[in-house]
């Protein structure tokens, strides 16, 4: 994966209010979860406004019924991070479908008490990902789509 050095990250997050805290957390998390990486992109809010924000995008390893799956997620950090929780989504590939439930809506947005009760410094990205791994290990947010069926053929009498 791409090597992201702290200097580059600091430059990327220049509009973040608590840049040093944010950079430190991102650096820590991507060193532990090597399939996540920071990406700068436009985040579109519900009101239609968009803003360039950093997200941690990639996969987290989730163990479900004895197998490990690389669940694709995207964690957006507001420029007020860590004083506001990340906005988190599961990002199904075309071969997957979202399983909506208590923790996941039809858009893939992730809802967790950990996010709802987010409070710096008790809450952080590392803790959040650990909670996700536990919760998703009980109830996966995505499943594989059934393999394509052969074309339908009518019964012939």
């Amino acid at each position: 994966m791409a090597v992201v050095n702290e200097g580059a990250l600091k430059k990327m997050l220049k509009q973040y209010k608590y840049r040093d805290l944010t950079v430190r957390e991102i650096t820590n998390v991507i060193s532990q979860y090597k399939d996540l990486k920071p990406v700068m992109d436009a985040y579109v809010f519900n009101d239609g406004n968009s803003r360039d924000l950093v997200s941690l995008a990639g996969t987290i390893p989730v163990s479900y019924r004895g197998n490990v799956y690389n669940i694709p997620v995207c964690l957006w950090l507001l420029d007020t991070y860590p004083y506001n929780p990340p906005i988190c989504f599961v990002k199904p590939t075309s071969a997957m479908m979202i399983k909506t439930g208590k923790h996941i809506d039809a858009n893939g947005k992730i809802y967790l008490p950990y996010l709802h009760e987010w409070k710096h410094p008790h809450s952080d990205l590392y803790g959040l990902i650990q909670v996700m791994i536990v919760v998703f290990g009980e109830e996966p947010p995505v499943f594989s789509r059934p393999t394509t069926q052969p074309p339908y053929q009518a019964f012939q009498a």
Binding site: K37, R65, N70, P72, K99, F143, S144, P146
Partner: peptide, 14 residues
């Protein structure tokens, strides 16, 4: 995913 792990998901639930 630029060299990251290949995303995967459990088989379809019934």
């Amino acid at each position: 995913l630029n060299g990251g792990a290949v995303p995967s998901a459990p088989p379809t639930y019934t």
